[in-house]
Simulated scan of single mutants.
Amino acid sequence: MSEAIDAFLAMLAAERGAAANTMAAYRRDLEAADELLGDLAGADRAALAGLGNAWSTLAPASVARKASALRQFYGFLVDEGLRKDDPSPALPRPATRRPLPKILSHAEIEALFSRAEREAEGENPPAVRLLTLLELLYGSGLRATELVSLPLAAVPRDAPFLTVVGKGGQQRMVPVSGRAKQALGRWLAVREANTKFLFPSRGNHLSRIRLYQLLKGLAGRAGIDPAKVSPHVLRHAFATHLLEGGADLRVLQTLLGHADIATTQIYTHVDAARLVALVNERHPLAERRRGG
């Protein structure tokens, strides 16, 4: 069994460029299913249908993830000629509803930047670094890991773009706004020299955990609930506010580094929810209901 799983994971790495964390998650799900079934590679439809009971205490999203891993695994076995049939249609298909991402309002974004800019006025290195991190999170939509691990070589010289290595080792170019470029220039003037990372820390780069802590601290000082602010929330704000401004969904997909347009489409739901709330609040009939 382990040989089949190893072969499947090797295919994910070679053909799809799957990241180490992704492959570790697939391995956990496949090996857990193998323990339940006894023979994952040879399991029939009845055995797979029975997994619904074994997974009954799990959240729908967890069941969907496990079932997806198994479907891909059996597809691989069929493609490689290791099985003649694909039993995966018998797997449970829980109804899942992807939660809408948290976003910050324009006023909250303004409060964050106002506070960060005031703190960076004296060219204090930690304050300038925080302003630069904020500019790149909200101005370029980077993931936390992409941001903290940026090499110095990724900083643009003439072209207004950053070269970013995203999920699965995929490279993409992301724009750097004029504001962010100014912040980068200020940071490069005060940052620690002789290190390959743009945001160095103790011989390595700034950690994701430290980035979270810095942003939550800034939120508190700006009068915003720290629970509302994280690197991913700023990425969501970048995407949602661009969409509100008329950005094309395909362009947004490229900027965010999404492999599948379906992932980007979640932002259309966010925008739709905002429009519904606007109608409910501002429509003349809403005024009549409140008056009554």
Rank of each mutant, 00 (worst) to 15 (best):
M11W: 14
P175Y: 11
V148I: 14
Y26N: 09
A286T: 10
A159Y: 00
S149M: 02
F8D: 05
R191L: 07
A25L: 02
V148H: 03
E15G: 10
L211I: 03
G223F: 12
L184I: 14
E244A: 10
L131G: 05
L51Y: 02
T132W: 08
R235E: 02
P226H: 11
R98A: 12
E135D: 08
G178W: 00
L211H: 15
N124P: 06
P60Q: 05
R208A: 06
H232S: 07
A239S: 07
L136F: 11
G52F: 13
G17F: 02
A107D: 15
P94V: 04
R179D: 00
L188M: 13
G50L: 13
R191E: 06
I5E: 04
H236A: 02
S88A: 15
L152G: 06
Q182K: 13
A277Y: 00
A90E: 07
S201I: 11
A127F: 07
A111D: 04
N280T: 11
A153M: 13
W55I: 05
I103F: 05
T195Y: 00
S105I: 04
L152C: 12
H283E: 09
L48E: 06
A247G: 05
Q170I: 15
Q265L: 08
K102F: 02
G257C: 06
G245I: 00
L91V: 13
R27K: 01
D6T: 00
R210L: 10
A24I: 02
L134P: 15
A153K: 13
L51R: 07
G246H: 03
N124D: 15
L130V: 03
A120G: 03
L104F: 08
V251A: 15
S56L: 07
I5C: 05
L252G: 02
R118P: 00
R202H: 11
E121S: 09
T163F: 08
L249E: 02
L9R: 01
G168S: 08
P101N: 06
L206N: 03
S114R: 14
A24E: 12
Q253E: 01
R83S: 14
A237Y: 02
M173Q: 14
L37G: 01
V233R: 03
A59Y: 06
I109P: 03
G257M: 07
S201M: 13
S68D: 06
A24F: 01
I103M: 03
G217F: 06
R274S: 08
G292N: 12
E15F: 11
T195H: 07
P231C: 09
E15L: 13
P94D: 04
A239T: 04
Y74H: 14
L252P: 01
D6N: 09
Y138N: 12
E117L: 07
Q72T: 09
L249K: 00
A54Q: 09
H258G: 02
R118A: 11
A64R: 08
M11K: 10
P125K: 12
K66L: 14
G217C: 11
V78M: 12
